[in-house]
Amino acid sequence: MKNKEQAFLAHIESNKGIIHKICKMYMDTADDQQDLFQEIVYQLWKSYDSFQEQSRFSTWMYRVSLNTAIVFFKKERRQLETSDTMPEHLADEEHRTSEKELQLYHFYKAVQQLERLEKALVFYHLENYSHREIADNLGISEGNARVKLNRAKTKLKELIKLQGYEF
């Protein structure tokens, strides 16, 4: 049991970056992202027995993580804390650490406005999944995945433009 737990936590440690990316796509505040991160790790642990060593850990992890994120409801007390203002360190030109950081801010802010399934489509696409693989993971037809993905990409670009930002 202890070995299993340690193996699991080692997997999570080496994949925490990608889990955090999912959290940032689905939640807009740091507290909600932390809550979702905890929830995903909890759901991954609950499902760990279903992980087959012969398949890639990331494939299994993406599926459980996105299933969790799609149906995750943030704590109601935090719903009013959403802010449209840019964090101070990004708004202030002098303290801006890098252009990349500002781009990431605009990217995630735009992604957060997509529908829950559109976020999953964009995620799989950015992780270089084919239309066939995206369709399999979402349980829809390949044609439907292609149409929805194109629509989500267009919407994402428009949302970034609406923020008055261009890469």
């Binding site: 399934l117 993971n137 979402l138 349980g139």
Partner: peptide, 10 residues
């Protein structure tokens, strides 16, 4: 319980 089904099935 948690599942590893596709998003639609889940």
């Amino acid at each position: 319980g948690s599942s590893v089904l596709s998003a639609k099935e889940h």
